[in-house]
Amino acid sequence: MGSRGSHAARIPDADGLRRETGFSQASLLRLYHRFQALDRNEKGYLSRMDLQQIGALAVNPLGDRIIESFFPDGRMRVDFPGFVRVLAHFRPADDEDDGSRDPKAPEPLNSRMNKLRFAFQLYDLDGDGKISRLEMLQVLRLMVGVQVTEEQLESIADRTVQEADEDGDGAVSFLEFAKSLEKMNIEQKMSIRILK
């Protein structure tokens, strides 16, 4: 298989990544191979163009927004640890919280709150901590395309913001967003089988 071996020892900080993301050693190894396959020029990082090779993102209406999440703060590349950290948000939540988790430890990346934070930032296009009516409308346009009229989209955006906006400021804060989704099984909806 060329110069790319399959040894777990080649994964940068595998133990730390396992603890931080909850992925098993085998899952990390499969993700590492996927990362290497996307990194066709063996640069050691991925660009936006590399991630656009992922078919599921290419057909996802929010694919560009998801790809953006790999590049916080305007960075131009993502290394393997950054790649895995973003994917960890989509890891199915552990079925049981047996109470053994250290309360001082950071919340798992695949927790309900972290999944909600990730989803919120997909809508918060300007990163100001609020989802405005215009941002809601822009995301709705991405999601439904030409299947709905502009008038219908505006009505949906207005109603969505109005229903979630508890403080009457015309926008949806993260707390309002989380509250509006409290009955939704976000753990299930934001879980994908990343690995076969």
Rank of each mutant, 00 (worst) to 15 (best):
43 K>E: 14
67 I>P: 04
38 L>W: 04
42 E>C: 13
53 Q>F: 08
44 G>R: 03
48 R>G: 13
57 L>K: 02
58 A>T: 13
58 A>D: 11
36 Q>L: 12
56 A>M: 11
54 I>K: 04
56 A>G: 12
64 D>H: 04
36 Q>C: 11
55 G>K: 11
60 N>K: 03
58 A>F: 09
50 D>E: 12
31 L>T: 01
64 D>C: 02
46 L>V: 08
37 A>K: 15
41 N>G: 08
63 G>L: 03
62 L>A: 09
40 R>L: 09
62 L>S: 06
65 R>K: 11
34 R>N: 08
35 F>N: 02
43 K>Q: 15
30 R>Y: 02
42 E>Y: 10
65 R>C: 08
47 S>N: 07
40 R>A: 14
68 E>A: 10
63 G>S: 06
29 L>V: 07
57 L>G: 10
46 L>Q: 01
33 H>A: 15
43 K>A: 15
38 L>I: 01
50 D>M: 05
58 A>E: 13
59 V>A: 08
62 L>T: 01
31 L>E: 04
40 R>K: 13
37 A>Y: 10
30 R>C: 08
53 Q>M: 15
60 N>V: 03
32 Y>W: 11
57 L>R: 02
43 K>I: 13
43 K>Y: 07
42 E>K: 11
49 M>S: 15
45 Y>E: 06
46 L>N: 01
33 H>Q: 14
60 N>L: 04
32 Y>Q: 03
46 L>D: 00
66 I>P: 04
39 D>N: 06
56 A>V: 15
59 V>G: 06
44 G>Y: 00
61 P>M: 04
56 A>Q: 15
58 A>K: 15
58 A>N: 08
29 L>K: 06
50 D>T: 07
29 L>I: 08
34 R>S: 09
34 R>W: 03
50 D>Y: 11
57 L>Y: 03
38 L>C: 05
54 I>N: 06
68 E>Q: 13
57 L>E: 05
38 L>T: 00
42 E>G: 10
54 I>R: 07
52 Q>S: 13
66 I>T: 04
49 M>P: 06
36 Q>E: 13
39 D>C: 02
53 Q>W: 06
31 L>V: 02
63 G>V: 03
54 I>L: 14
34 R>L: 09
55 G>M: 12
37 A>M: 09
60 N>W: 00
54 I>D: 06
47 S>R: 09
42 E>S: 12
